[in-house]
Write a protein that binds this DNA or RNA. Structure first.
Lengths: 155, 155
DNA sequence: TATTGTTATACTCTATAACTATA
DNA sequence: TATAGTTATAGAGTATAACAATA
């Protein structure tokens, strides 16, 4: 007859590596929590994590094309089409054909887009503060550095 | 007239914190890469990250119910239904009504399920090795600890 | 020929509500 | 009344292929 205490001990100690030790699983679960919190917070601006990211990129001096946005966010170019469609219909961004390559659309934020991006960034920041608040500033910094290696691997 | 060199310098240095410094964004991008690699690797066993995670949990001594699986994987209970349906139809897991609470289904792996889980775990391990290979063993260990805090926050 | 953006389509995933059986 | 599992459904996200304009 199995003893409950032993069963618990074996699950806690002598087991083969479980999901709670699995980097990929922890990445998935942490991301799910972070994404849900971000989407909930950004909703007040009519944004989600995706559209927020696109909007933020369009406020950048780098002036990315749709293709560059797709690569950076790991989205299919066709998904960027509808994200930019939405932001453009709300007057937040504009498409400008790149004079240097007239196939490409450079996407730039309008003044209204920049204002919304700034407000949304504050919202996102305080939502992150809440989600990541269990970590010290140093731990967050370290985590950011480690994740950057995984997110942007050297070729 | 803007000088290109200055523009590049400003994007690299004096800019407001961009997405590459954003923990939530890095989490999302790293997870997307890890998930894509995991799904590709597990395909040879007819599994994806989701079904693999469910199968692995059913090999655990803890004998989780569908509701517990849903909570642990942050899935809706209805999603667990179809994941378990699939695994069960392939003879990899069984549903047993919990004698202590006859509403609940305890999901347990069959022998075939255990064998597949073991093989899939090896596949997953080597896929992870490839994805996370840019980090040293110590860095991976540190990253795992930090992510665990975000993935399982104290209440 | 190859690439950028676009459209269309199918598929998966996610979220929600309602139902049943048990508690 | 509340909970576990199930079913159904609608919406969001993902993946693919084909096309026009441009390189």
């Amino acid at each position: 007859m199995p003893k409950p205490a032993d069963a618990v001990a074996s699950t806690a100690a002598s087991r083969t590596p479980a999901l709670t030790d699995d980097l990929s699983f922890l990445l998935a679960r942490a991301n799910a929590i972070s994404l849900a919190a971000g989407n909930a917070a950004l909703a007040e601006h009519g944004l989600k994590a995706r559209s927020y990211s696109v909007l933020l990129l369009t406020t950048d001096d780098a002036r990315p094309s749709q293709r560059e946005i797709a690569e950076f966010l790991r989205l299919d170019p066709s998904q960027v089409v509808s994200l930019v469609d939405d932001l453009q219909s709300r007057g937040l961004v504009e498409r400008r054909t790149d004079p240097a390559d007239r196939r490409a659309n450079v996407v730039v934020a309008t003044d209204a887009g920049r204002r919304l991006a700034a407000a949304a960034r504050e919202t996102a920041r305080s939502a992150e503060e809440h989600v990541h608040g269990q970590l010290t500033r140093e731990e967050r910094q370290r985590l950011t550095e480690l994740l950057r290696v995984l997110a942007f691997p050297e070729r």
